[in-house]
Design a protein around this nucleic acid. Structure first.
Length: 201
DNA sequence: CGACCGATCGTCT
DNA sequence: GACGATCGGTCGA
């Protein structure tokens, strides 16, 4: 289990980082309790040229400021007033790229995840979709800006790799407002994995 | 099945 | 004052 180093995140090609994040393990250890899951779905957001990104056009606000920091930090924001969406900031300072983590396969701490989400059984909805996974791992907007080198929130590599033909690309979900950019194939996911969100199959 | 809808609130205009 | 990088429930076919 190797914690991903800063160099993994601080690369220029957000699509490359997004693809490589599929198969890695997202871990939280809040209050000494570990919960983790293998990443099976992500979306890349390509900064100022990407109409779907919060940083489109160089827009800079208190909320998205962490996207302009150096790669390797968490960017968490509240969506629809309910869901806390977890992103990984990539690239270098002043280049606001990010990868949204959309689904996990639970590994560690399923009991804790059930407690946090209020679900009864550990089915595929537990960590399916960005809102659900954040809730299951205990990630909230208060964690926005913290480094992924921290002891409480980080991503590891256990040398597991999905085969190339198991990974598919598609347009991103829920970004119709981005017009033509909503068609960009910036979503990467594991085929036929029950934890992957979006329409079934 | 698919379409629709309500929840809920921080952020930006 | 409007609007989400969502989710889960309901309703009708």
């Amino acid at each position: 289990m190797k914690k991903l180093h800063r160099g993994f995140y601080q690369r220029k090609n957000v699509l490359q980082v997004a693809k490589e994040l599929v198969g890695k393990i997202l871990v939280t250890k809040f209050g000494g309790i570990e919960t983790s899951g293998r990443i099976v779905e992500v979306e890349a957001y390509a900064g100022i040229i990407d109409k779907a990104s919060h940083a489109f056009g160089g827009k800079r606000t208190a909320r998205n400021e962490v996207m302009y920091g150096e790669g390797g930090a968490a960017y968490v924001y509240l969506c629809y007033g309910i869901h806390h969406l977890f992103n990984v900031v990539t690239n270098y300072r002043e280049v606001p790229h990010a990868v949204l983590i959309r689904a996990l396969e639970p590994i560690e701490g399923v009991e804790t995840m059930l407690k946090r989400t209020g679900k009864k059984k550990p089915d595929h909805t537990l960590t399916r979709g960005p809102g659900n996974l954040s809730k299951a791992l205990g990630i909230y907007t208060q964690h926005s800006g913290i480094s992924l080198q921290s002891k409480e929130l980080f991503i590891t590599d256990d040398d597991f790799v999905f085969k190339k033909n198991q990974i598919a690309a598609s347009p991103r979900i829920g970004v119709d407002y981005a017009g033509d950019h909503s068609l960009w194939p910036y979503r990467f996911f594991v085929k036929d994995n029950p934890f992957v969100s979006g329409k079934l199959k």
